[in-house]
Simulated scan of single mutants.
Amino acid sequence: MNAAPPLVRAVASAADRKSFVDLAYRLNAADPHWIPPLKSEVRALITPGKNPWFEHAEAAFFLAERDGRAVGRISAQVDRLVLETMGAGTGQWGMFEAQDQPTAQALIAHAEQWLRDKGMTRSLGPFSLSIWDEPGLLIKGFDHSPTLMMGHNSPDYEGWIEAAGYRGVKDLLTYELDITVAMPPIVQRIVASGDRNERIRIRKVDKSRFDEEAALILGILNDAWSTNWGFIPLTDAEIAYAAKKLKPLVYEDLIRVAELDGEPVAFMMTLPDMNELIKDLDGKLFPFGWAKLLWRLRKPQVRTMRVALMGVLKRLQSTRLASQLAFMMIEYTRRGALKRYSSSRSEIGWILDDNAGMRSIADAIESHINRIYRIYEKPL
Rank of each mutant, 00 (worst) to 15 (best):
E263F: 06
K284Q: 15
V42D: 09
F267R: 01
E41G: 06
E158Q: 07
L221T: 07
F327L: 12
A12L: 02
I74F: 06
D211F: 00
R335F: 00
P32Y: 00
R296I: 05
M149P: 03
D253M: 05
Y341T: 10
D100N: 11
V191I: 14
A3N: 10
T227A: 05
A266K: 02
A106C: 06
A326F: 02
T180P: 03
L352W: 00
G141N: 12
K314H: 11
I131N: 04
R320W: 00
V307T: 13
S208G: 10
T47N: 05
D171C: 03
A364F: 02
L254H: 08
Y241K: 08
A364I: 09
G89N: 03
T270S: 14
M183A: 14
A109S: 13
L297N: 08
L124D: 04
K279T: 04
L293N: 05
T174L: 12
E65S: 07
D354E: 11
E112I: 08
M1H: 07
G89W: 06
M120G: 10
Y25H: 13
L285Q: 04
L173C: 03
D282H: 08
W53T: 01
A88K: 13
I217K: 07
T227C: 01
V307L: 15
S367F: 03
I220F: 01
S318N: 12
S343H: 00
I375H: 11
A214M: 13
F54V: 10
E58F: 15
A88C: 10
R116Q: 09
D354P: 03
D16I: 09
E112L: 08
L313K: 14
A240P: 07
V205N: 04
L234E: 10
P102T: 04
L254D: 11
P37Q: 02
V169T: 06
I375V: 14
S360P: 05
S40T: 08
M95L: 14
M183C: 10
Q301T: 09
L277G: 14
L221N: 03
A214R: 09
A308Q: 06
R335K: 12
Q317R: 10
E377W: 01
V71W: 02
L63N: 04
A291R: 15
I202M: 09
L293E: 07
N28K: 08
P126V: 07
G159M: 08
A364K: 12
L321E: 12
